[in-house]
Design a protein around this nucleic acid. Sequence first.
DNA 1: GTCTATAATTCGATAGAC
DNA 2: GTCTATCGAATTATAGAC
Lengths: 189, 189
Amino acid sequence: MTKQAQFFQTALELIHEKGFKAMTIRDLAKALSCDPANIYNYVRSKADLLDQLLFEISAEFHRGIDEILQSGLTPPQQIEELIRQHVELSAQRPLQVGLLVNEWRNLKDSRLLEFVGERNAYEQKVQQILRQGIRTKYFRDFDPELICFTVLGCLRWQHSYNLRSQIEHQNPLRVREEIRRFVLPGLLI
Amino acid sequence: MTKQAQFFQTALELIHEKGFKAMTIRDLAKALSCDPANIYNYVRSKADLLDQLLFEISAEFHRGIDEILQSGLTPPQQIEELIRQHVELSAQRPLQVGLLVNEWRNLKDSRLLEFVGERNAYEQKVQQILRQGIRTKYFRDFDPELICFTVLGCLRWQHSYNLRSQIEHQNPLRVREEIRRFVLPGLLI
DNA sequence: GTCTATAATTCGATAGAC
DNA sequence: GTCTATCGAATTATAGAC
């Protein structure tokens, strides 16, 4: 692992453990066995650290759902693919995914607004899948906005499950199948 | 509203807006149009403020699920009642419910451990309902731990929905019915 | 890249008069 | 209960030598 990768990995672990606001530059330096001043070789400021980590993973989710929207899959297949993406990212990078839930509030002013904009856009894309499914009679006639929140609620807790539960439960294929069998019957006609 | 109620309500609004760590005693005093020193007429310390708010709402959820476990309802009915309780609390007290998701990490040492213990106990109670439902053939044979997380994921996002969405969508009866029709088919045989 | 030293600010909390 | 004044500690970030 490069020094830069080690830096961001350690930062992620510390943010997860204490929260971004509570983690200090000194804590991070200590965990990296270096001096606090060295932190600024990797990031401009503490705010810049959170900024990079958050927008990188946000963009990852957008790339995923944009692929889905252009895939030509049926709406139920698109939801299955959405589940697969969330399970995979939550398994491979649970700490960074966790930031999207726990730490976005700590972004600074204009960047906070940008992030909320991206999050709203993501939810609109999910609603687009749901509305298309209702229109084409794959899905029953539910409230797309409310069910969007509910489905994303199911998926957004995966990262903490991966961090808290036993290792043998983290088989992504099994997790994906369990969630698929829970979510789809609630949507289909 | 009593002065004490006004104090805690304003604190909740400020914590929701900025996060507990970022909210300062001075911010709170300004919002209450009083002096920073006066804050300590209501709480011993800043940590004590979060402590009271968090454990009070945690106890509320435990009271609810304990009633369910002693109710004699069938497992599907118990899940319906669980949904009702979450929807109701998330509608009536969204800010305080939000603390359970966003701010528990900021509790101090021993109290943090106590809170995590209470949260784990709550999840065990939900799993108890699910296991009972599987055993009595109401529910299909899913993984109780994973589905517990998934169901609670659906429910734990209600508070932010109530804070972000349009007022006409906040009819608890409608929300409850939408979620019920989404969740139950994923559980039943 | 690494360190020492420290500037500049902000915070939680208290003492004590009214 | 309310205020003035302030202490002591902790924080981010930088300057500058190596």
